[in-house]
Write a protein that binds this DNA or RNA. Structure first.
Lengths: 225, 225
DNA sequence: CCCGTTGTTGGTACGGAGTACCTTATAGAC
DNA sequence: GTCTATAAGGTACTCCGTACCAACAACGGG
């Protein structure tokens, strides 16, 4: 049932062969038989391993979906905001670990329209997975279903924003940028009951404004460090 | 150069034939030749008109993109929020006007994975178009590029949320729900300078809390009617 | 009236994706 | 050893999408 190192090697060889050939002569000019031949297997084996020529570009997609789902399932009501951030970070880390391979995929997908469609389809699956959990978590809010969809879209978009910057070599610290992006995206997350509007508090006190400000500052720092 | 009624008729006949056959025997079981034959034209003509079997499902996609772009291009800085809402509404109205055809497409796309990928690809194009304009409009904000992407995602998501409800016959007043959805989505739109965080105001006054509340109430009513 | 020109259509042929089916080989299980 | 199960290769087929060519208007100018 679990991963056999033997079968993983065959898949890996196919992936490596595919990326080599795509870089050499382009995606359309590479046939499934070319890939299979370079990997030293038959054409049938290629289609058994991947099902389609596109799938060889995004081999661990299913596994990533599973890990996100697990992370979200493990959240308690108090840790949901953190779980959302970390589940999203799982994907970012995966690409960062891939390194040059991720960048090769990015160049490839950017130049082949057919692959772009495939990629956005995959992104949509992430978004739907987040939305499924969030609709449950936010079901008691007013406009909860809508806000769940919006937050799911924001999480995925914020992730892609940072990932794209890293893929283009426009950032040296993607993790910090990701933290900031998650903070902005999670502005939409209001754990049930906490209304999104501002509160006006009127009180009588002898304290000076400066003293009150000093009392409040730690709370603000805690909320947005 | 402009639309000839003759050529439009051929395209329309092909679209009608395609939807008929897809409903009769399903998407995969229908060949391009079947569609062409029922429309009374040759297979070559079909591919000349649509380029691919998928394209026949989303015939006016390009035109819609153009209309959104025009609407956004016509906005002035003061009317941008309205322009965003109306540009999005262009798409909603288009589907509402299609009526049963839109629902047939929805059923079809929902049951054929390959078409789902195509549709999300189209949605992504809308989102990128909005993002292109918003990045320009929000370039002077802190995190403007990120917030532009997020708002673009929110607009598209909010639209899809209402559209899907209408397609499933879960709403009798999609326009009102759309207005509400746009209000929620546009919470992210902060015309440059207006900071999104809450303000804490400390003041000394002899007024009673009730009097102050009475003063503030109209402002809150105005902000969220 | 004929004749090029141009644009639209149908037909044919081809390469390649993806599927179905069959055969082969390798590895355990007994 | 033999039997069985599982992974692999091979072959044939359908259909998508493209390239190319032939037929056939429409049309204006000679």
């Amino acid at each position: 049932m679990s991963e056999k190192p033997r079968s993983a090697t065959t898949k890996d060889r196919l992936v490596a062969a595919a990326f080599e050939l795509f870089e050499e002569r382009g995606f359309d000019a590479t046939t499934a038989e070319d890939i299979a031949r370079r990997a030293g297997v038959g054409r049938t084996t290629f289609f058994r391993a991947f099902g389609s020529k596109d799938d060889v570009i995004f081999p661990e997609h299913e596994e990533l979906l599973g890990r996100i789902d697990q992370r979200l399932a493990a959240a308690t009501p108090a840790t949901r905001a953190l779980a959302l951030s970390e589940a999203t970070r799982v994907v970012l880390r995966h690409y960062l670990d891939e390194g040059e391979l991720a960048r090769a995929r990015y160049r490839l997908v950017g130049s082949v329209p057919a692959l772009r469609a495939r990629e956005t389809g995959g992104i949509q699956q992430y978004q739907r997975l987040f939305a499924r959990w969030l609709r449950e978590w936010m079901s008691d809010l007013s406009d909860g279903q809508l806000r769940a969809d919006l937050l799911a879209a924001d999480l995925v978009t914020a992730h892609n924003f940072v990932l794209r910057r890293w893929l283009r070599d426009q950032t040296s610290d993607p993790e910090s940028e990701f933290d900031q992006a998650m903070r902005v995206a999670l502005e939409r997350y209001q754990p049930s009951g906490l209304e999104p509007s501002s509160a006006v508090v009127v009180l009588r006190t002898s304290a000076t404004p400066a003293a009150i400000q000093a009392q409040l500052q730690p709370l603000l720092d805690d909320e947005a460090p």
